[in-house]
């Protein structure tokens, strides 16, 4: 198991019902973790509409998770 910290924003924060959490997961990659959480919490955004940041930088979905990682799933942006 890998223990990671997650921070949620915008629609995902509302669907998760909280801004952050620490959790232990068997997911090997960021994509697998998103799939796991999407199913558990009913996230409506398909992974194709979401980006991931790991430790403060955009990352590839197939990045392997390591204990201590901080992840943010990034819904479609809408600044301006």
């Amino acid at each position: 198991m890998t223990t990671v910290t997650l921070h949620y924003f915008a629609l995902l924060r509302e669907q998760r019902g909280q801004s952050s959490e620490s959790l232990a997961t068997a997911a090997a990659t960021a994509a697998a973790l998103y799939a796991e959480l999407a199913q558990r919490h009913g996230f409506t955004l398909p992974v194709t509409h979401v980006r991931v940041a790991i430790n403060g930088e955009f990352a590839a979905w197939d990045t392997a998770l390591r204990t201590g990682d901080e992840l943010v799933f990034i819904p479609p942006v809408a600044g301006g």
């Binding site: 955004l45 398909p46 479609p76 942006v77 809408a78 301006g80």
Partner: peptide
């Protein structure tokens, strides 16, 4: 700068409508 900011920077916008409804822009599924 404004075009790239709108496209790339992780900022989100929720509209609150006169009807009382609200929605996150670009997050429709």
């Amino acid at each position: 700068i404004i075009d790239e900011t709108k496209a790339r920077v992780p900022i989100w916008k929720k509209e609150h409508y006169a009807s009382g409804a609200s929605g996150w822009i670009n997050c429709a599924t």
